[in-house]
Design a binder for these strands. Sequence first.
DNA 1: GCCCGAATAT
DNA 2: TATATTCGGG
Length: 576
Amino acid sequence: MLCGLNNTETGGTFSFLPRGLREDAKPAMVCTANDLQGWKDFPKGLKVLLLDGDIISGAETKEKLEVMDYNVSAFDDENEALSAISRRPEDFHIAVVEVSTSSSQGGFKFLENAKDLPTIMTSNNQCLSTMMKCIALGAVEFLTKPLSEDKLRNIWQHVVHKAFNAGANALPQSLKPVKESVDSMLQLQTENEQHESKILVDVDNVSKLSDNDHELHSGGDKYPAPSTPQLKQGERLLDDGDCHDQPNCSTEKESGEHDGDSKSVDTSCDNLNTESTTPPGKPEKTLIKGEEDFAVVYKGESAVSLNPHNRKFLSKARGNTTSPNKAGVQIVSCEIKANRKKMKVDWTTELHKKFVKAVEQLGVDQAIPSRILELMKVEGLTRHNVASHLQKYRIQKRQIVPREDDRRWTNQREPMQRSYNPQRPIMAYPPYHSNHTLSPAPVYPMWGQPCSQTAGVQFWNPPGYPMWQPFPGVHADAWGCPVLPPPQAPCFSYTQNMAGLHNAKTVDYRFGMPRNSFEQHPAEEVVDKVVKEAMSKPWLPLPLGLKPPSADSVLAELSKQGISSIPLGSKGSIPH
DNA sequence: GCCCGAATAT
DNA sequence: TATATTCGGG
């Protein structure tokens, strides 16, 4: 996207600008690919009001502008110019006004009365105070004469900037087609773009600017002259400079790997849990390094920030600025093409840590998306995001353990089946919504697995997760080794039981043949211990080697105890 | 109607 | 591949 901007003059792909700026521009409808072809004509038709008290100078400037196919309406009288724009405001996209040293008003009157029109002031005089005054009065730029083609060529940028940064009310009539067209094109661009040029977009600032007409910005050094390199110009156009040199600006992955350094204070949205009915509060970010707060970083096209729909909920998010302790999501990919499309969350290491921490805090059996979300307190993150991540997290966990421990004897068992841990005795698990708050052990046995392993790095870093480097020994990291106890200490009894039972005669032969002779003669007390523990903690998975009791034996046992019947199909006895 | 997890789509 | 979205069920 930005590269498109950058390439406006070099034949790049910034195809969406011209359309809205052409003379025949209409309020944007649907853009076709053909529309995109015309961008090379971009300067054509830009309607420039030229006001220069010096007729000769004015004619020269007019000529230059016309060479660039701008559509110039020249005036040498301020009042005439003003009356022209009041009569037909839609006839002008931008004004180039000379600061006359001879006349009393010197163009300032125009400037003050044509605030809706992006106005570039020009003068032979480089007097700082004059320049200041121009800018203070709302000029978007001050250009010193003589006006070279270079200086004039890119004045369209002010038009686009104005179109997007003026509040809805302040948006000049003539620029509405520009905005709409660009808007539309941006969305189309987003859809068409195969390669994602990833730009950090400061959505918040865009939003802010959209509410106020900060023309002063454009005049300051924050807003370079059109002749300045366009990349920068483009960045400002889109994010108004707050992107700075954040690594996030260019590559979202890096942003994650910077370990949260680019976090920013987020102050918005309290409604973290209402995402299903309200759009997630889009992060406000100021890119201030902030304590425990996260920056929200979206990946993707800058178009996002300009999308009216986004802007809408950006504003909404901005409404709640008092909520403390909100972390922001690093969201990397903006896919706003369709209005319903949500931002893609970039699960950076930091964010993932937060996630894992929340999961641990809840205990696995309580770790449901909504609760995780609550605990994470991450701005802009939705339950869906968490759910999705949780899903992946669990899948990872499932895959890890069998691979590590059971691969040797499980493989043929259920080829290509879901990689549920075969150790997981389904009946032994409580339903997910159970209230086993006391259980320190994870529902997914593998969650504890790493504790008994020394597999190390690659264990936690299956291919494809390079950025989630394990942090050996670090709490709550990567794919979720919960709190890591010292290697010599058992993670939880389950692990120990496993060991014991692997050695027991009761080893489940489904999974392979018994090992060596030592394994076949475990100490009896080991078995007892394991069985006792398994019975005392029925919510834990049965260790390998223990089979769930048959229904018959259960019934027999129950009848022994005087219970003649049990409610069948009782809710929740079987997890999903 | 909300939330969940799984499956599927992007 | 990572994440979003959809789906079926509780």
